[in-house]
Design a protein around this nucleic acid. Structure first.
Lengths: 188, 188
DNA sequence: ATGGGGTGTAGTCGACCACTCACTCTTTCT
DNA sequence: AGAAAGAGTGAGTGGTCGACTACACCCCAT
């Protein structure tokens, strides 16, 4: 009966991952400085003290969340690339973009990326996480699609434009300027 | 001699504007939640209490700063457009982009825009300020350049890409991925 | 020369923050 | 059975924040 899965307590590793998952929703709203560790704890269903047993500091917690987000983005891109293997670079990029659009239909992922970018300005650890995250992502997109520099650049530029559209909830504003900015961008 | 400029005390209006100008530098680093009103006061060379005499709340102060930034962006774009009147839409966009690049050679302007975007997620007043700011800017760029929707969209997408590059200080990283993202983007 | 209104500050206050520690309860090992 | 190891928490700590009040100062019109 060793491997019996009936346990009241989870292992620390399980907890750490579940905290990462739920912390995305917590940080998505008010970002690194605006979100308290108490809110993260409540979202995870544990005490605030235990957050500090799982992660040494708030900063370490946030950077772990950021890295987790980049992993999920990477997974989505891989799935998109797999669905278009053997096509032209442009078609692969399109498929990746579609997979990304599907991933961020839950806005929280994208909002954490935005807040991470903002926190990267003043927090060196966050900056480092964001840098390596984008480094890996850019190189992956380039390699998996085989697209030229300009197309890869446009791919990320449009991604950044998505950050803007989501952060100000442009969907809720029906005006020429929102239609111009959102033109051709898929929403699920 | 009414307009005699020798005064130790400034009028509240003058102070308000000087606070807005210096507050850009204060908010540029850690954004809305991460910057204290005391820091804003110190940057302006006044007491923290006086910040609250000039602006009713921290939120009102921040949104005023955001609006001030949009005004300066608008002025730069106008200058860029003026330098290319009568050219093709593409040339006007180029000239505007160049003027914008010059404006944000001081990074603070752009960082405030980024932080405003982040704060817009949770603070309705900030969201409203950012929305109307972009609404005006998009319509101005469209009207002054006469460019098509796609070009206008790309113009702003590249602007958003600049936000990323500056926030993670991509200039300091010499790697293929940074060169790809920064390709063709002027830096002064 | 003085009264009054605008400029500016010191001091404070309750709320809340990141973080700590002593402690209990559960599971596993022997 | 009993002890060691690990999961999880209640109750704080010191410090700081936004906001407010009460008061000093300066300048100009009268």
């Amino acid at each position: 009966m060793k491997t019996e899965r009936r346990r009241q307590l989870s292992t620390a590793e399980e907890r750490r991952e579940s905290v990462l998952r739920t912390a995305i929703g917590a940080f998505a709203g008010k970002g690194y400085f605006g979100t308290t560790t108490t809110e993260v704890a409540r979202a995870a269903g544990i005490s605030q003290a235990y957050v500090y047993r799982l992660f040494p500091t708030k900063e370490a917690l946030f950077t772990a969340v950021v890295e987790y987000c980049f992993h999920r983005v990477r997974a989505a891109l891989e799935e998109g690339a797999a669905r278009a293997t053997g096509s032209t670079p442009e078609a692969v990029l399109d498929s990746m973009g579609d997979a990304y659009a599907r991933l961020i239909s839950d806005n929280d992922l994208l909002l954490v990326q935005l807040h991470a970018q903002a926190a990267a300005v003043s927090e060196p650890a966050v900056r480092e996480a964001v840098r390596t995250g984008y480094a890996r992502t850019v190189e992956y997109v380039r390699g998996a699609s085989g697209a030229g520099e300009e197309d890869v650049q446009r791919f990320f530029a449009v991604g950044m434009l998505c950050h803007l559209l989501v952060s100000i909830d442009a969907e809720a504003v029906d005006a020429p300027w929102t239609r111009t900015l959102a033109k051709g961008i898929t929403r699920y």
